[in-house]
Measured scan of single mutants.
Amino acid sequence: MSIQHFRVALIPFFAAFCLPVFAHPETLVKVKDAEDQLGARVGYIELDLNSGKILESFRPEERFPMMSTFKVLLCGAVLSRVDAGQEQLGRRIHYSQNDLVEYSPVTEKHLTDGMTVRELCSAAITMSDNTAANLLLTTIGGPKELTAFLHNMGDHVTRLDRWEPELNEAIPNDERDTTMPAAMATTLRKLLTGELLTLASRQQLIDWMEADKVAGPLLRSALPAGWFIADKSGASERGSRGIIAALGPDGKPSRIVVIYTTGSQATMDERNRQIAEIGASLIKHW
């Protein structure tokens, strides 16, 4: 067993022997300050990975656009099909120029040879490739089937209704393509630590998230040396920005953090900075 597999395998073990964890309200002060700075709603939740206990939250049951954070859930659904023998990570999918949508930095380079399901999930999570996400959605039956998968997991909140890039419209009070911080955190925890996926698939999912290449300005920018993070960011219209992450010190994840914001007129750089500052406060008061 590799060191990485050993780390994931021990998560349920540590759950039975973990020391108590305590929240620090200073982080919530920073979350509220971020709302003021951005002139927008901010949703935040911090969940103990082992016990599932909510350590701190702000607007945990308000809806926010999922943006590209849905791609982790999508690849979780794909992996569940792999575990059930209904899909193969090595299966090659061919597509055409007509399938390409905006922001497809990986898939646009493989029009001649296609990409495997594994490569598409990697592109969707690590590079947030939109065409990769659409091709993967097709393999499971579309957005409604992803919503059904989540319902079967016990998540009756999170929903995907449209494809890339339309799902990023982020219209106020529109429940399409939205989640709540509490629902997303719970669902992510189930995918990473529960029995829904095999150990190999849980490890694959967290490996893809750990290799995320487009979330550098967010929580990763505040991460001390030696800390672990596996994450997925998202951005969409109407000043929306978000990130879902499993992180912790000593090279292993111990908490789930979900941050969403929407309705801001601030620049992308400012939205990134506010999320990074929330992360810095979280780490300082860990």
Results as ranks from 00 to 15, higher is better:
173 N>C: 13
242 G>V: 06
192 L>G: 00
77 A>S: 11
174 D>L: 02
215 A>N: 02
241 R>T: 06
77 A>G: 05
170 A>G: 15
21 V>D: 06
231 D>A: 04
17 F>R: 07
283 I>C: 04
178 T>V: 02
83 D>H: 07
91 R>H: 09
198 T>A: 11
26 E>K: 06
43 G>D: 00
39 G>A: 11
126 T>K: 04
228 F>S: 02
175 E>P: 14
268 M>T: 06
48 D>V: 01
101 V>R: 07
237 E>R: 15
216 G>V: 04
235 A>S: 10
92 R>A: 07
167 L>P: 02
247 L>H: 00
89 L>T: 03
164 E>N: 05
44 Y>I: 08
78 V>L: 05
264 S>H: 07
143 P>L: 01
202 R>K: 12
238 R>L: 08
201 S>A: 11
219 L>I: 14
75 C>G: 07
169 E>W: 08
196 L>Y: 15
246 A>V: 11
232 K>Q: 00
206 I>Y: 07
168 N>R: 03
14 F>C: 09
253 P>L: 06
124 A>D: 00
67 M>L: 12
244 I>E: 00
55 L>T: 03
67 M>F: 01
206 I>S: 13
117 V>T: 06
194 G>N: 09
243 I>M: 04
250 D>F: 11
171 I>T: 13
284 K>T: 11
41 R>P: 09
252 K>T: 12
149 F>R: 05
150 L>P: 00
212 D>N: 14
186 T>H: 15
249 P>M: 03
56 E>A: 11
200 A>R: 14
147 T>L: 02
99 D>G: 04
180 M>L: 08
82 V>R: 04
62 E>V: 05
126 T>Q: 05
244 I>K: 00
228 F>K: 02
175 E>S: 11
64 F>W: 00
273 R>I: 07
251 G>V: 04
207 D>I: 09
201 S>N: 09
100 L>C: 03
3 I>G: 04
180 M>S: 15
219 L>F: 05
204 Q>A: 10
178 T>G: 01
4 Q>D: 11
218 L>H: 02
222 A>C: 08
265 Q>S: 14
130 N>C: 04
80 S>V: 10
212 D>G: 04
254 S>V: 10
22 F>A: 12
156 H>A: 08
109 K>A: 12
175 E>A: 12
189 R>V: 04
149 F>C: 05
195 E>A: 07
22 F>I: 07
54 I>D: 02
178 T>P: 00
167 L>Q: 02
178 T>R: 00
56 E>R: 04
190 K>S: 11
274 Q>E: 07
254 S>H: 09
242 G>N: 02
70 F>L: 05
52 G>A: 04
222 A>R: 14
21 V>S: 03
95 Y>F: 14
213 K>E: 10
67 M>T: 09
254 S>R: 08
216 G>E: 10
264 S>C: 10
3 I>T: 11
253 P>T: 03
62 E>K: 03
72 V>R: 00
271 R>S: 09
135 L>R: 02
87 E>I: 09
24 H>F: 03
84 A>R: 11
81 R>L: 08
180 M>W: 10
64 F>Y: 03
243 I>L: 08
73 L>A: 09
90 G>L: 10
10 L>A: 12
187 T>V: 03
41 R>E: 06
88 Q>P: 01
238 R>D: 13
176 R>G: 03
224 P>V: 01
175 E>Y: 10
109 K>V: 08
90 G>F: 13
61 E>T: 04
93 I>F: 03
200 A>Y: 14
59 R>S: 09
38 L>H: 05
144 K>Y: 12
127 M>A: 07
160 L>I: 12
79 L>E: 00
213 K>M: 10
60 P>C: 06
219 L>R: 01
243 I>R: 00
250 D>R: 09
60 P>L: 06
195 E>V: 04
61 E>R: 14
206 I>A: 09
90 G>C: 11
2 S>R: 11
75 C>I: 09
214 V>G: 07
153 M>A: 13
113 D>E: 12
15 A>D: 01
223 L>D: 00
60 P>S: 13
285 H>T: 08
166 E>D: 12
180 M>I: 11
7 R>V: 08
163 W>V: 07
30 K>L: 09
211 A>L: 08
115 M>V: 01
100 L>M: 14
85 G>F: 08
12 P>I: 15
89 L>C: 04
250 D>G: 14
195 E>G: 10
231 D>Q: 04
18 C>T: 15
21 V>I: 02
183 A>K: 04
240 S>L: 03
177 D>N: 02
223 L>P: 00
42 V>R: 00
17 F>C: 11
113 D>N: 10
56 E>Q: 06
35 E>D: 07
207 D>Y: 06
182 A>M: 15
251 G>F: 05
166 E>L: 08
184 M>I: 08
52 G>C: 02
128 S>G: 02
210 E>D: 04
2 S>C: 11
55 L>I: 07
163 W>Q: 07
239 G>T: 05
102 E>M: 14
103 Y>E: 04
211 A>P: 02
81 R>H: 09
256 I>L: 08
126 T>M: 06
174 D>A: 03
284 K>Q: 14
265 Q>M: 14
98 N>E: 14
217 P>L: 05
154 G>V: 01
4 Q>G: 10
243 I>D: 00
91 R>A: 05
188 L>V: 09
250 D>L: 08
188 L>F: 08
283 I>T: 03
140 I>A: 02
270 E>G: 03
12 P>G: 14
135 L>F: 03
163 W>N: 06
6 F>G: 06
212 D>A: 01
183 A>W: 07
226 G>D: 07
201 S>F: 09
269 D>K: 11
176 R>A: 06
6 F>C: 10
179 T>K: 00
194 G>C: 11
175 E>R: 06
253 P>R: 04
67 M>S: 11
168 N>L: 03
148 A>T: 10
223 L>T: 10
236 S>D: 06
205 L>I: 09
32 K>E: 08
265 Q>P: 12
84 A>V: 14
162 R>H: 08
86 Q>K: 12
149 F>Y: 11
35 E>L: 00
254 S>F: 06
139 T>Y: 03
118 R>Q: 15
251 G>N: 13
193 T>Y: 15
165 P>V: 06
163 W>T: 07
67 M>D: 04
252 K>Y: 11
78 V>A: 03
118 R>V: 09
36 D>N: 14
86 Q>T: 09
60 P>A: 15
223 L>R: 01
134 N>D: 01
8 V>N: 15
72 V>I: 07
38 L>E: 04
241 R>E: 02
223 L>A: 06
168 N>K: 03
183 A>C: 07
161 D>V: 02
90 G>N: 15
268 M>W: 10
260 Y>L: 11
168 N>Y: 03
125 I>T: 02
175 E>W: 08
269 D>H: 10
219 L>V: 04
198 T>F: 07
188 L>C: 05
12 P>C: 13
85 G>S: 10
97 Q>S: 15
242 G>T: 00
13 F>R: 11
27 T>V: 12
149 F>V: 09
216 G>D: 10
201 S>T: 07
217 P>V: 06
226 G>L: 01
84 A>D: 14
61 E>A: 13
226 G>E: 05
210 E>K: 10
208 W>R: 00
82 V>L: 03
142 G>V: 13
183 A>G: 04
198 T>D: 10
220 R>G: 01
140 I>V: 12
284 K>L: 09
153 M>H: 11
89 L>R: 04
200 A>T: 14
6 F>V: 07
270 E>K: 10
270 E>S: 05
98 N>A: 08
91 R>S: 04
188 L>W: 01
207 D>V: 10
231 D>G: 03
93 I>V: 13
174 D>R: 02
250 D>C: 14
102 E>R: 11
217 P>I: 03
161 D>R: 01
168 N>W: 02
90 G>M: 09
180 M>G: 11
238 R>V: 10
